[in-house]
Design a protein around this nucleic acid. Structure first.
Length: 310
RNA sequence: GGCGGCAUAGCCAAGUGGAAAGGCGGCGGUCUGCAAAACCGCUAUACCCCGGUUCGAAUCCGGGUGCCGCCU
């Protein structure tokens, strides 16, 4: 039959250490699902323990996609993510299975659901030029530039926010258009998928406890060795992958700069901050909110949601 | 019993006459192609209590209370 089926997708989101992986696997097993990873860190090869990837056993139980797609020195972004996620989705559907998008990266999930503004790859020269200007004339100068060409964007962001200043500036240089206009036009109005979004938010106290426990588990499972291997492969703090919480600290421990105990405390603090940011991202928009990864709470709804596909 | 020191937010802590730094912890938020990134914001009507000096005291003086050292 030739007709356009609606694209619909179940999504599981929530802060780190809330039990997304567990819930996703349990549901997948019941409904014949396959998991698409929406975590910006788990796409990196060789970074398994510290990014909390599902174990190999877990991955054997249920097929996982978009894990281990690039090396730690490569860059990745939301645009690449949705292109890959789309094709995973289609393949899974071809097999008659049910896709479940799981992850903690709010931007990727939003982009998957509602798209991004059109944006070609920014030429390397433009990036370099901006970086050069930053070094020569300072961040303030760049911000003033942005004010001139796109006051609306400048108004919305802090003069300290280099990544966004750079983005707006380079977009203008590459496209000849203000990014603010494109954003206005786009406005996240498009709906690429009809979704059923499950949001897990454990009470803070419990979440913080799981975070701490998880750090100890990671250490026990060999986070230090994993980091040491990365360093031997010549992947270090200059790699995009190393912006993942904890790897810098692990490297510092290996180099004898800090003690494990203080590394743990730093990681604990950063992870909590990260979890809070995730909560602010997800709390605004979801289909159901649950406070623990209990499959029985959502299984029936997931089955109902996917009924129209079968 | 004597001598000395300390007493500031949930915790640590600066300030030693002119309208309470900072850190930790906690909390709220932004986010359109580096997002586990980057960025923004809130968190002591007042400094142990009472009295005094002063235009003005967390800051000086007296007394009280508590804690910590040392001594007998």
């Amino acid at each position: 039959m030739v007709y356009e089926k609606v694209k619909i997708c179940v999504i599981i989101c929530g802060p780190t250490a809330s039990g997304k992986t567990f819930l996703a696997i349990e549901i997948s097993k019941k409904i014949g699902g396959e998991i698409i990873n929406a975590d910006s860190r788990q796409i990196y090869k060789f970074m398994d323990i510290g990014t909390g990837k599902p174990t190999l056993e877990e991955r054997k139980e249920v097929p996982h996609h978009l894990i281990d797609v690039i090396t730690p020195d490569e860059r990745f972004d939301a645009g690449k993510f949705i292109a890959l996620a789309d094709s995973c989705y289609d393949e899974i559907r071809k097999r008659g299975k049910f896709p479940i998008l799981v992850g903690g990266t709010g931007l990727y999930i939003r982009a998957f659901e509602r798209g991004l503004i059109p944006s070609p790859p920014i030429p390397q020269e433009i990036r370099e030029e901006i970086l050069r200007k930053k070094q020569e004339k300072g961040l303030k100068y760049l911000y003033e530039e942005l004010k001139k060409i796109d006051p609306e964007t400048a108004d919305k962001i802090s003069p300290q926010d280099f990544p966004r200043i750079e983005r707006a500036l380079s977009y203008y240089m590459a496209m000849g258009q203000r990014i603010s206009e494109m954003r206005k036009k786009h406005g996240f109005k498009e709906k690429r998928y009809e979704t059923f979004k499950i949001y897990i938010e454990p009470p803070r106290e419990r979440l913080y406890k799981s975070i701490r426990k998880r750090i100890y588990d990671m250490l026990k499972r060999g986070w230090l060795d994993e980091t040491e291997k990365l360093l031997k492969m010549e992947y270090d703090e200059n790699c995009p992958g190393f912006t993942s919480v904890g790897y810098r600290e692990m490297a510092d421990v290996i180099r004898g700069k800090i003690k494990v105990e203080s590394a743990i405390e730093m990681i604990y603090k950063k992870t909590k901050e990260y979890a809070r940011r995730q909560i602010f991202w997800f709390k605004k928009e979801h289909s159901v909110k649950i406070d623990s990864p209990d499959p029985s709470k959502v299984l029936k709804k997931v089955e109902e949601f996917y009924e129209i596909l079968s």
